[in-house]
């Protein structure tokens, strides 16, 4: 009897390993193996990296990219853009979620949610192509709208000093719905009794927001901020579609720069940049999470 039970247990264990196997295979083949490859190639000479007998160059690729002023500029632009986008997305999403969740707009809230979330599921290439066209100087809608309002035309994507802002707006439009929905989900979980009690105590709308609602939303703010940080550090598609890193490298994000290097067959430098960004995403994401969780906001 015991032998049968034991055999059955082993069989069941095998079954569960079998269930996990295809997924594990995907993770290894399309996740861990490429990551390992990427880190390995970062220490190889680009010209021999793909040959059967690659030459190890130690940290030479990292030395090259950190001596490259364009990479410095690329890192700086990526960090500025990320900071701008994290703040803009979290703040706007919070504002939209509070407005949509307000008892004043009970009717129609689904419609507002739909409109704001629609860009999230829209294919990014299509979305950014439309924004690029809307920013166009000749036939774009945005300059025409500015003119209709009596405002001077703007260069948007055509000039180095406005391109990053123009991209930030397009990216905000594309992603803010995602963060809004997360805030709305968390707002729905709040304890209404606390708000009611504060109201009975004569607390104003602003007092209730600052002392009742926001402290309860703290975990959601942390999650959204960390998510946004990871997302915007990796920004890529918008640069490919709208600016190709330009004008004059103004939107040359790290991931885009790495991709360009890869395209030029400079595999060592490309993967060194990729590895640097990976470390940056991990370190900043963790630091932000740690800071937000530790700090007492009340």
């Amino acid at each position: 009897m015991n032998a049968i039970a034991a055999a059955r247990r082993t069989w069941n264990e095998r079954l569960f390993y079998l269930f996990a196997l295809p997924f594990a295979a995907l993770v290894i083949v399309f996740g861990l193996w490429p990551i390992a490859q990427s880190i390995r190639v970062a220490f190889l000479d680009s010209y021999t990296a793909l040959s059967p007998d690659p030459r190890w160059v130690g940290f030479a690729n990292f030395e090259t990219i950190f001596a490259d002023p364009y990479f410095h500029a690329s890192l700086r632009i990526t960090l500025i853009f990320t900071a701008l986008s994290v703040v803009a997305n979290v703040a706007v999403a919070l504002g939209l979620a509070l407005a949509i969740n307000s008892p004043l707009v009970r009717r129609g809230s689904t419609f507002f949610k739909l409109c704001i979330f629609l860009p999230v599921i829209t294919p990014d290439v299509a979305a950014f192509i439309v924004w690029k066209a809307m920013y166009d100087q000749d036939f774009g809608a945005i300059n025409a709208a500015l003119a209709a309002l009596g405002l001077p035309p703007m260069a948007f994507l055509a000039r180095a000093d406005s391109a990053l802002w123009a991209i930030t707006v397009a990216e905000l439009w594309k992603h803010v719905g995602f963060y809004t929905i997360i805030f709305l989900t968390n707002l729905a979980l709040l304890d209404p009794e606390l708000d009611r009690a504060a109201m009975l105590d004569g607390a104003s709308w602003r007092q209730r927001l600052v002392h009742v609602t926001l402290p309860q939303l703290r975990p959601a703010i942390t999650i959204n901020a960390v998510y946004a940080l990871i997302q915007f550090l990796k920004t890529f598609t918008v640069a490919v579609v709208m600016t190709r890193g330009g004008p004059n490298f103004a939107t040359n994000f790290v991931s885009y720069y790495a991709y360009r290097r890869f395209d030029e067959a400079l595999y060592g430098e490309a993967t060194a940049m990729a590895t640097t960004l990976f470390v940056l995403v991990g370190a900043l994401g963790y630091a932000m999470y740690w800071a937000a969780e530790r700090r007492d906001w009340r």
Binding site: E13, F16, Y17, A20, F23, A24, V27, I28, V29, F30, G31, L32, W33, P34, I35, Q37, S38, V41, L50, I230, L233, K234, F236, T237, S255, A258, Y259, F262, Y267, A270, T271, M273, A274, L277, F278, V281, G282, G285
Partner: peptide, 30 residues
């Protein structure tokens, strides 16, 4: 608690942390 099964989770977490667009460079090689 099955031996090794949690490694799948950690491997997956590591994978989704890696910049997706940059993962594709080595995926090309794979």
């Amino acid at each position: 608690k099955l031996r090794g099964l949690q490694l799948v989770r950690y491997g997956f977490l590591l994978t989704i942390m890696y910049p997706y667009m940059l993962l594709l460079i080595p995926v090309y090689l794979v």
